[in-house]
């Protein structure tokens, strides 16, 4: 890959806002989210249920279920805007330029087709290959994701594979057209720990080899620590903190990230009580004014209740918190 291309981000999301019009008014599920991913980079998107992390992934795919819609912001993939494309043009990008790995490998494979047919169909739809070439390519891919005896397994149906093997097939499917970007939404959540480690390894190795950018969506900080280069922590639809994974995990700045890290039990840490973030994430209908985290924040002060903080550089990360604002420090 030439130097110029590998220096440009694969994906640029700028000011993304996803809204759901309801009878009780418009709900903003994703609010002013911006990030970019470089080739071969793994960006983690972490947060609790309802933080808007999966919706961000769905919006990039252009698969938001109506009435959900991208209300503002831009999504640029490899230099081209993809958030305003008509349905059939987006279809050609999905699968070719963006691969997908979802949580449940059983529902993302068609149970009525052999996995070979599903791989070959995807390859011949998006790439200029004959059936025989596509089949050969599929077998190579299956071998690459670690499926034993791929020339025999390719003619089997999804139910003949175990959960971990199925997820490997899904990864092969996501990578079969050599996409620029893979969006992986909770790829290991449905799997047991020993299998989870295998899958993370496969995903990481393949994306490094193919220089594919990855958006990894998960609630599991352990998976993030293990896999990502950078991580964005989402809370109530916004990014609270984004930075290099080591920095965010070992040196969390936002009080939410801090609380989140403290609440994770860890083997070898002998503590009697876990740090607790009191309360729970607000519903979309009840997001408070100012910083959305203010009702649960132990450090909240006047400004947090009226003004919403934007992401600002702090050390190696960016944090959306008034505690790190210059004016606060001066006062």
């Amino acid at each position: 890959m030439d130097a110029e291309l590998s220096n440009r981000p694969v994906l640029q999301v700028q000011g993304l806002r996803v809204e759901f019009p309801t009878r009780r008014g418009v709900l903003t599920a994703v609010d002013d989210v911006s990030f970019e991913i470089m080739p071969g980079e793994v960006l983690g998107l972490v947060g609790e249920s309802g933080a808007g992390k999966s919706l961000t992934g769905t919006a990039i795919f252009g698969l938001l279920e109506p009435p959900g819609r991208v209300a503002s912001g831009t999504i640029v993939l490899g230099g081209d805007r993809i958030d305003n494309l008509p349905h059939d043009r987006m279809r050609r990008i999905r699968g070719k330029k963006i691969g997908a790995v979802f949580q449940d490998p059983l529902t993302s494979l068609n149970p009525l087709y052999t996995i070979g047919r599903q791989l070959i169909e995807t390859i011949t739809t998006h790439m200029d290959m004959t059936l025989a070439e596509a089949r050969q390519h599929s077998i190579e891919l299956l071998a690459e994701v670690g499926i034993p005896a791929p020339e025999r397994r390719i003619d089997q149906y999804p139910h003949q594979f175990s959960g971990g093997m199925r997820q490997r097939v899904v990864i092969a499917l996501a990578l079969c057209t050599n996409p620029r970007l893979v969006v992986a939404d909770e790829p290991t959540t449905a799997l047991d720990v020993s299998i989870q480690a295998q899958i993370i390894r496969v995903l990481k190795r393949l994306c490094r080899d193919h220089k594919t950018a990855v958006l990894l969506i998960t609630h599991d900080m352990g998976v993030i620590a293990e896999t990502c280069d950078r991580v964005a922590v989402m809370y109530a639809g916004r990014i609270a903190e984004i930075g290099p994974v080591r920095e965010v995990i070992k040196n969390a700045k936002h009080p939410y990230t801090h609380g989140l890290m403290g609440s994770i039990p860890n083997i070898g840490h002998d503590i009697d009580e876990l740090t607790q973030i009191h309360g729970s994430m607000p519903r979309l209908t009840e997001i408070p004014p100012g910083c959305a985290f203010n009702p649960r924040c132990p450090h909240a002060f006047d400004r947090c209740f009226v003004e919403r903080p934007d992401l600002a550089q702090e050390d190696k990360s960016q944090v959306a918190c008034w505690l790190f604002d210059k004016e606060t420090a001066d006062a």
């Binding site: 989870q196 480690a197 390894r201 352990g222 083997i267």
Partner: peptide
């Protein structure tokens, strides 16, 4: 035990399971 992701980020090399 070896399969759990390492939150301390010690860079401990894990043997694949």
């Amino acid at each position: 035990l070896d399969a759990i992701p390492d939150l301390d980020m010690t860079g401990r090399e894990r043997t694949p399971v």
